[in-house]
Amino acid sequence: MRWPLRFGVAAVVLAVLYGVGLGVEAGLIEYVQRIVLLAGINVILAVGLNLINGTTGQFSIGHAGFMAVGAYTAAFLGEQLAPKLAAALGPGAVASALTFNLALLAGAAMAALAGLAVGAPSLRLKGDYLAIVTLGFGEIIRIVFNNASFLGAATGYYGNSPAGLPPYTTFFWVYSWVIVIVLVVRNLTFSQTGRSLIAIREDEVAAEAMATPTTRLKVTAFTLSAATAGIAGGLFAHLQSGIRPEDFKFEKSIDMIIMIIIGGLGSISGAVIGGVFLAVTLELMRDLQEYRLVLYAALLIAIMLLRPQGLLGSQELGSVLARLRRRARP
């Protein structure tokens, strides 16, 4: 596609998102709105995690830690930026949109840095070291926030105003970021880099013998994955009045893994479906809170028995549908 056409399409998509956003805000009760926004945030988390766990085959089980880094950075920085930008641009929609997106990008950058720090040493090795290191990282980062008094320690960070963090997270912004992140990850996956990541998953020794810079690519994928979790964290933070360390417990990392296992490891569309599915079921199971982990375990066992490759396997929705259509034809 040529650039003018791309900008045209982007403008139309943004306009539609804005329109739908207005509709959602006017037509849906707040409770349902929240589920719709959480679904979008889940999609970002799942698509990002799938890049490293599914496509590259390097298991991270501490992604809640990167989400926390993004959430706290965006929340804290947003509070610092907001008055300055409001003073410079005049208070209003433009200033808050700019504040929000700069805060999100800063959250992504900090999460990416954390990802680089965790990934660079552990991804030099072959095997499951990443799982162990990310597990440790997730716990450490939560304990750090639990003790950081300028971020509210265990009570959580609620910003400078008594009303808590500003509710920047709207339908428009969540789904704009969903589209950007899904597109970036998709374009990356269907390229020489993506092929190389899959090759690393399939056989790292052979990939190396074929001149693949395995360590560099693994670290790149992991850093990007951490950055997307950071964006999701920033969006999550501004959906609530505040964030607490316990929002990013180990269970949160498990939630993300369940999303991509349901959808099928290695499939972007599978991650999208898994993300939405989890947002909806989590709400439906609200009354069964204490049984949640039991139900998840049962669900995972059922998947392993009935469809171990997940809903879509490592394929994309498009190719699965095309095959079904061919089969349906006489």
Partner: peptide, 27 residues
């Protein structure tokens, strides 16, 4: 040691690193 889950064509394409010049941003 093939990349078992990938297609025959992709197996070959993976080894194209010597002619790979475009960046991640291009992709």
């Amino acid at each position: 040691r093939l990349f078992r889950g990938m297609t025959v064509e992709q197996n070959v394409m993976v080894a194209g690193h010597r002619i790979h010049e475009t960046s991640l941003l291009d992709a």
